[in-house]
Simulated scan of single mutants.
Amino acid sequence: MDVDVFVAAHRPAWDRLEHLTKRSRKLTGAEADELVLLYQRAATHLSTLRAKAPDPALVEHLSAVVIRARSAVTGTHSPAWREFGLFFSRRFPAAVYRSWHWWVPVMVVSLLASGVVSAWIALNPEVQAAVAAPEEIQQLTAPGGDFESYYSSDPAASFAARVWTNNAWVAAGCLLLGVLFGLPVLYILGSNVLNIGLSGGLMAAAGRLDVFLGLITPHGLLELTAVFVAAGTGLRLGWTVIDPGRRTRAAALGAEGRSVVLMALGLACVLLVTGVIEAFVTPSGLPTWARVGIGVVAELVFFAYVFILGRRAAAAGETGDLDARLTAATTPSSG
C-alpha cells in the first residue's frame, strides 16, 4: 500500500473529523451524524494502517484523532461504572492483544523449556540425587506427600488469598521491572521454568506424572498464561527503553508505562480467578477429568476474550492506554 496516496486521499476526512470533534458541544443534528460516520471511517483507516503500513508517527497521530472523536461521540461524562466496563470490555483485552507478539513466544519457549527440564530430571537419577536427598524426594512425591497436600494446606479462602497475592506480585514484578532492560523478567521466567520442571521431573520419575498434571492443570493453564502475558509485556517495555522508535524515550515510556499499569490491574483480576480455582477446584473431590476440564474452559475463555474482544477493540483504535482526556498533551517528535 502506498502510504502517501492513502494519506492524501483520507487526510481531508481526518481534518474534518478533528474540526467536528472540537465543536462537539455545538453540532447540529446533521453534523453529529457526520461526526459518527467520520469516526467509524477513521477507526477503519487506523486498523488498515496498523496492518499494512505501521508508520509509528502516523499511527500515533491517527490514534489520538480517533480516541478524541470517540470521546466526543460517546460523551464527555463517564460514570465510574462505565469506565469500569470500558476497562474490561475494551482497554484491558486490547492491551493484552497488542502484546501477543511478545507473550505468545514467551509462553511457547517457557513451556518447552519446562518440558526439557522435566525430562532431563526424570531420566537422570544422578540429577535427582543432586537436587535433593532421597527421603526429601519421597516426602514430596509420595501419595499424600508435600506436592499433593500443598493444595489443601490451609482453609480454602485463606489459601486462595495467599496464592492470589503471591501470583499478583510475580506478575507485577514482570511488568514493572521490565523497564530495567527486561533483565529481571528473564530471571523470573527462568525461576518459573526451573520450578515447574523440577516438580514435574521428580513426579514423573516417581511414576506420578498423571497426578502432577491433574493437580497443576486446573489452575495452572490460566495462571501461567497470566504470568507469560506479564513477562512478555515487561520485555516489550524493556525493549522500548532500548529502542523507543520515532517517539522520544520519555513519550514512549509514558505511553507503554501507562498501559503496563492498566494491564497489572487486569491481570490481578485474572489471577484472582486462578486463585479461586486453585483453592476450591484443584484439591476438590471432583474427578480429574472434571477438574482439568474447568481449567481448560477457563483458558479457552481467556483466549477468546483476548483474540476476539481484544482484537476488535484494537482494530477500533483502542491502544490500552488511558483515555486521551486523562493523559497529558505531548508535542510531536520526529526521528
Results as ranks from 00 to 15, higher is better:
V3W: 04
V5W: 02
F6Y: 02
A8P: 11
A13Q: 06
W14T: 07
D15S: 10
T21N: 06
R25M: 12
K26S: 05
G29Q: 08
A32R: 15
D33F: 12
L35E: 00
L37I: 12
L37F: 12
Y39N: 13
A42W: 04
T44P: 02
H45S: 04
R50E: 06
A51V: 07
P54M: 11
L62N: 05
A64Q: 10
V66Y: 02
V66N: 03
V66G: 03
R68F: 01
R70L: 04
G75I: 14
T76H: 15
E83N: 13
F87N: 09
F88L: 10
R98C: 06
S99A: 09
H101I: 09
W102G: 11
W103H: 11
M107V: 09
M107N: 09
S110R: 05
A113F: 09
G115F: 06
V117N: 00
V117A: 00
S118P: 00
A119Q: 05
W120G: 08
W120P: 03
I121T: 01
A122Y: 00
L123G: 03
N124G: 01
P125N: 07
P125A: 11
Q128Y: 08
Q128E: 07
A129I: 11
A130N: 06
A133M: 14
E135Q: 15
Q138P: 04
A142V: 13
G144A: 02
G144Q: 03
D146S: 15
Y151P: 00
F159R: 01
R162D: 05
V163R: 05
W164E: 02
A171I: 15
A172W: 10
A172N: 08
C174L: 12
C174V: 12
L175Q: 03
L176K: 06
L176W: 09
L180P: 14
F181I: 07
V185I: 11
L186F: 11
L186Y: 10
Y187T: 03
I188T: 10
I188G: 00
G190F: 06
N192Q: 05
I196D: 07
L198P: 02
G201L: 04
A205K: 12
G207N: 08
R208G: 10
L209E: 12
L209C: 06
L213W: 13
T217R: 02
T217P: 01
T217K: 03
L224S: 00
T225K: 06
A226D: 01
V229P: 04
T233E: 00
R236I: 12
L237I: 09
W239Q: 12
W239N: 12
T248V: 15
T248W: 09
A250W: 08
A252Y: 13
V260W: 00
L262W: 09
M263E: 05
L265N: 05
E278M: 11
A279N: 01
V281Q: 01
S284W: 03
T288I: 06
V292R: 02
G293K: 14
G293T: 11
I294D: 00
G295I: 05
V296C: 00
A298C: 07
L300M: 08
F302A: 03
Y305L: 11
A313I: 10
A315K: 13
A315Q: 09
A315V: 10
D321F: 06
A324D: 01
P332Y: 14
